[in-house]
Amino acid sequence: MAVSLDKNTILRYKEFTEWTDTLRDLHESIWLQPLAEGKASAGEIISHLKNWDTYIISTIIPAINNDEGMIFPDFNSFNQVAYEYARSGVSKASLLDEFKSTRLQLVDMLLANPDIVAKHVTANGVEICPHTGTPYSLLYIIHEFNDHDNHHKNQILTAI
């Protein structure tokens, strides 16, 4: 049975790459500077977003395909790996290319698999988001990630 899919949420997720392309003009000296005291840099944020997209591709989608729930790792240690990658010597252009390529790959997967995207599943064993009362699905996670993207976009724009 085909499931109706809100493609706008997914297309909004794709459109974020248009904004991240503008970061190619960001001066190299700013790319890895913390945006504020104790905060990540623009480069670390892009690496962080890429890692979450990669995780959805490599772990979340296969789990849903296998009728399993979504399992998300400890955010702090997961994000730390992304921050370290951004500081590993990878160039700004390469990291932005990796992010865009990964995001577009994920969007293509989401659009091609509406049944997987809209299927109600658990997230770390929980069926319904305790904050919104919405049943978990990959589409719900992408909706949340859109808000997450915009949070980081605003952080970067405020700092630069």
Score class of each variant (00 low, 15 high):
109 M>V: 01
106 L>Y: 05
118 A>I: 06
139 L>F: 03
78 F>R: 02
132 T>K: 01
89 G>R: 05
145 F>R: 12
68 E>P: 07
107 V>N: 05
134 T>F: 05
82 A>E: 00
108 D>V: 03
78 F>G: 02
106 L>P: 07
94 S>K: 04
145 F>T: 13
70 M>S: 08
133 G>A: 06
139 L>D: 01
135 P>C: 11
98 E>K: 12
107 V>K: 05
74 D>M: 01
85 Y>V: 14
115 D>H: 08
134 T>V: 14
138 L>V: 13
69 G>F: 06
128 I>R: 12
69 G>S: 09
107 V>W: 03
97 D>A: 13
140 Y>M: 11
95 L>T: 04
149 D>W: 04
79 N>S: 09
132 T>N: 03
121 V>R: 10
90 V>L: 08
96 L>Y: 06
109 M>C: 08
76 N>Y: 01
65 N>D: 13
143 H>N: 08
100 K>P: 02
77 S>P: 05
124 N>V: 15
80 Q>V: 00
71 I>V: 15
72 F>L: 15
102 T>P: 09
123 A>Q: 12
86 A>T: 04
129 C>Q: 06
81 V>Q: 10
146 N>I: 07
122 T>D: 11
139 L>E: 00
123 A>D: 04
130 P>D: 04
81 V>N: 06
96 L>N: 03
142 I>L: 04
85 Y>H: 14
67 D>Y: 07
82 A>G: 02
90 V>F: 02
143 H>I: 00
147 D>M: 14
90 V>T: 12
120 H>L: 03
83 Y>K: 03
99 F>L: 15
133 G>H: 09
87 R>T: 00
91 S>I: 10
109 M>L: 14
99 F>Q: 03
89 G>N: 06
69 G>T: 04
68 E>H: 11
102 T>H: 12
123 A>W: 10
118 A>M: 08
141 I>K: 03
126 V>W: 10
94 S>N: 07
84 E>D: 15
149 D>S: 05
110 L>P: 02
125 G>D: 11
95 L>M: 12
121 V>A: 08
87 R>G: 00
100 K>C: 05
85 Y>A: 11
71 I>H: 10
92 K>E: 06
137 S>H: 07
125 G>R: 09
76 N>D: 13
114 P>E: 10
81 V>E: 14
112 A>W: 00
113 N>T: 15
120 H>S: 11
97 D>E: 11
104 L>P: 05
119 K>D: 08
136 Y>L: 07
101 S>C: 08
137 S>E: 03
126 V>F: 10
66 N>F: 04
136 Y>K: 09
121 V>H: 09
66 N>Y: 07
114 P>I: 07
114 P>D: 09
129 C>W: 03
138 L>I: 13
99 F>R: 04
132 T>C: 06
86 A>F: 01
109 M>W: 04
90 V>P: 03
87 R>H: 01
104 L>M: 13
69 G>I: 07
109 M>R: 13
108 D>R: 11
138 L>E: 00
123 A>N: 13
91 S>V: 11
79 N>K: 05
91 S>T: 15
149 D>R: 01
109 M>P: 01
79 N>F: 01
131 H>S: 15
80 Q>W: 00
92 K>H: 03
142 I>P: 01
70 M>L: 10
104 L>E: 15
66 N>C: 09
145 F>C: 09
120 H>V: 07
73 P>T: 12
72 F>G: 10
144 E>M: 14
78 F>I: 02
132 T>I: 01
85 Y>F: 13
139 L>K: 05
129 C>L: 07
71 I>R: 11
